[in-house]
Amino acid sequence: MRIMITGASGYFGQLLAQRLRDDLGADTEIIGIDIREAEDTPQEMRFLEGDTRKKRIEDIFKVQDQIDTVIHLARDATPGLPSDKSMMTNVYGTAHMLELALKYKVKQFIFPSASIVYGAHRDNPALIHECHPLLGNRDVSNIRDRVEADMICQSFSNNTRMKVVILRIVPIWRAQGNGMLQRYMKHDLVPTLMGYDPMFQIIYEEEVLEAFSLTVRNPKAFGAYNIRGRVFMPLSKVIKELGKTPLPLPEPLVHKKGQFRWSENVRFDFNYLKYPFCVDGDRARRELKYRPEEITITRV
């Protein structure tokens, strides 16, 4: 089996390579692709330089033998990046990789999306199903890119030759790194919107890795899956769970036109702290056998 991971130099790409090697054994070859090599690329992975936006990336498919699975992690979420630049990587790059994967007879294409694509709205159902429309706020480039990329993947998911799997993952709490959730909860005091305490879901790294590993090992998986962790509680309790203190403040003190006042470079739709956007993980539980409550969490 041969697996290609794009965006492999990223923090998560490296974790995933190690995890897949542990789960799938030594006869699985893992090819990592990124625009530059990380300093400590794990030995499990064969690194190749390539840019998902460029035509030249096709050469990798040409010279390799059959690639069975593509895991498309490449994404540019650099804070403050102009939105047209991020769109090239996040949307065009995804479409490009999908076309190449189809052309070179890849069997499975896994795309990590996020539960924020559903958008936070006051009439959201208590738990959102996979078939819910993607109503994420298009004014924030980060969210818009995710929605667009998710929709492009969906348009490929009717394909019978290649199984396109979209994992809509709830906000990830990472041990290291610079995710949206980390930047929001940078300080010990975490401002929340006074009077609003919606139900919130977060997921730990181990749970995400398990979901990826189960998907790779399940050739029948296709379409969108909501991936939720074991944590499902009000936002203030989530903040306490992560060892921080929630600080309810009137909305104007938390953000100005979507620009977070408490940490630099966080542009965000603050409806996500106001309305629930919790997902129903039943499909992943049923079809991927993904059971978050059975996973041991070591890094928090």
């Binding site: 006051r122 009439d123 959201n124 159902p125 208590a126 006074m194 009077g195 609003y196 305490d197 009000p234």
Partner: peptide, 26 residues
């Protein structure tokens, strides 16, 4: 009423007591 979800404190109270917004899924 959906409008309840916009009112501070009430939206939280409704959610904590298990009241639902009227949609098919709920």
């Amino acid at each position: 009423n959906r409008a309840i979800a916009d009112i501070p404190f009430f939206s939280t109270l409704m959610s904590r007591t298990g009241q639902v917004i009227g949609c098919d899924d709920n």
